[in-house]
């Protein structure tokens, strides 16, 4: 009996030490957790929480000015929570030009300088307005369903999806966290598989740190 207890204790310790070693998933702020707990206890959990943001693009703004204009709508952590936001905000095709929706993993801000984004970049896809509602919805579902994660190299992940309404064609963006691994991703093939009828007028990738406006000094100070 005594021996049994000792064994149990030692394997528990072992288990705890293993847990400590493999706890490398991002931590949520307490505020985020309490918001999540509120209304989403009964839904089907997502792999990670995702946050809806809205912004209006104003040319020439600094990172700080942009951050002040950025509006966080809600952090969802369940499938039902996702739909309760999606079903109750204006659809993408009704937004005025220069507005964007973003869905970002955890509570990352849709900013190049966010500490989880700053080593990454994004694919930009120029999208005909007739296709935008479908493209946006499919990419949201692929993101929260983690259908895109198998397309990413080990160590890389999809950090967000965005859709920006512009005067002529709209712009869809897929954010990743490791620009150095973007070449190894097959995400564009996956998008074309998900949307076989859609032809994107242009597709390219850019690392955030290669933007002239990237504010190196701003990295790390964004999170409260």
């Amino acid at each position: 009996m005594l021996a049994g207890l000792t064994m149990a204790a030692s394997s528990l310790q072992e288990l705890e030490s293993i847990e400590k070693l493999s706890t490398d998933s991002p931590q949520l702020h307490r505020k985020a957790i309490s918001e999540i707990n509120y209304s989403e206890e009964t839904g089907v959990p997502l792999n990670t929480p995702w946050t809806f943001y809205l912004d209006k693009s104003v040319p020439g703004t600094s990172a700080a000015e942009y951050e002040a204009l950025l509006k966080k709508l809600y952090t969802v952590s369940t499938v039902q929570g996702f739909w309760s936001v999606y079903n109750n905000i204006p659809t993408i095709e009704t937004l005025s030009s220069r507005y964007s929706y973003h869905l970002m993993r955890y509570e990352r801000k849709p900013m190049w300088e966010d500490e989880d984004n700053c080593r990454g970049g994004n694919w930009k896809l120029k999208c005909h307005k007739d296709d935008t509602p479908k493209v946006w919805k499919e990419l949201l579902l692929a993101a929260i369903g983690e259908q895109l994660s198998d397309c990413m190299a080990q160590g890389d992940e999809v950090g967000g999806v965005s859709c920006s309404v512009r005067d002529r064609d709209d712009i869809v963006q897929l954010w990743n966290t490791r620009a150095d691994l973007a070449d190894k991703s097959t995400i564009i093939q996956k998008v074309q598989e998900l949307l076989p009828d859609v032809v994107f007028a242009a597709i390219f990738y850019k690392a955030f740190q290669t933007h002239q406006a990237f504010e190196r000094g701003k990295v790390k100070t964004i999170r409260e």
Binding site: G43, L73, V79, W83, S84, V85, N88, E138, G145
Partner: peptide, 27 residues
């Protein structure tokens, strides 16, 4: 484990009663 949801499952959840109104504490 990492959890995957396919498109049709996600769409099935779209009309759940929980999704008819926005989260009460949404911005």
């Amino acid at each position: 484990s990492r959890i995957y949801y396919d498109r049709s499952f996600l769409l099935q959840c779209r009309n759940s009663p929980l999704t008819k109104s926005p989260p009460p504490n949404m911005a």
